[in-house]
Nucleic acid binder design. Structure first.
Length: 219
DNA sequence: ATCCCGAGGG
DNA sequence: CCCTCTGGAT
């Protein structure tokens, strides 16, 4: 199957089955989403939501977070991965937000990446979810699923290369929702260790499944 | 033992 | 390019 067909099938399938896929992180404003996404690195959304339930009431604004210390923030986030780094990042992020951006979450990935803890993936999530820009954040799920399905060439060995490929081939008005499609598919079906191909409706369009069938015909 | 919506530093 | 950070779930 050609790549263009795979993309068409993907958009067709997910548009029908997950028309309104969105993030599973809890948040009620741009600042909270920024905090939640920083916390989500190498950590499940479920765990992040447990932490932010108490973190947000204590630090409801960029000002309140900027006025705190990494040590205090650490106590609230100790159960996520890399709590030390993230505590420092969160306070540093809030201080730049207050000092350089008038406490408003900026709307370009360039400005967003000026803040500690905000890399390209986090910045892309913010401009996509908050500012409705056609940006594709490539995390571990998007990276893995894109390669397995055969949406990107094997030579796309970095998140940035995968991002450029996906942006190029997915219709502009579907890019934001497609990000969440790939996340959900990666989280619940096309999981890292033992993908649940038996439950997957994308089998007919999946390069990895094709190859597996060819290598082990008894399947 | 491996993975979870990565980022920073060398 | 590599390494480190580093808790919880499976």
């Amino acid at each position: 199957m050609q790549k263009k067909e795979r993309y068409n099938e993907l958009v067709e399938y997910f548009s029908t089955n997950y028309p309104e896929a969105e993030t599973e992180l809890n948040y009620s404003n741009p600042y909270e989403l920024l905090v939640a996404v920083i916390l989500s690195a190498q950590c499940t959304d479920k765990r992040v939501n447990i932490v932010t339930e108490k973190l947000f009431p204590r630090f409801p604004t960029p000002e309140s977070l900027a006025a705190s210390t990494a040590d205090e923030v650490f106590e609230y986030i100790r159960s996520v991965s890399y709590p030390n780094n993230k505590a420092k990042h969160l306070v540093g992020m809030a201080r730049i937000l207050v000092n350089d951006f008038n406490s408003e979450v900026p709307n370009t990935i360039e400005d967003l990446q000026k803040m500690p803890g905000v890399g390209r993936k986090t910045a892309n999530v913010i401009v996509s979810v908050i500012f409705n820009q056609p940006a594709m954040a490539v995390d571990t799920h998007v990276f893995r699923v894109s390669h397995r399905l055969g949406l990107v060439p094997k030579t796309a060995k970095t998140p940035l290369l995968v991002e450029k490929q996906l942006i190029k081939h997915i219709p502009k008005d579907k890019i934001a929702v497609a990000h969440h499609w790939l996340i959900l598919h990666g989280r619940y079906i096309c999981v890292a260790r033992t993908p649940k191909c038996g439950e997957c409706n994308l089998k007919p369009f999946c390069q990895a499944y094709e190859k597996q069938k060819f290598d082990t015909p008894h399947l």
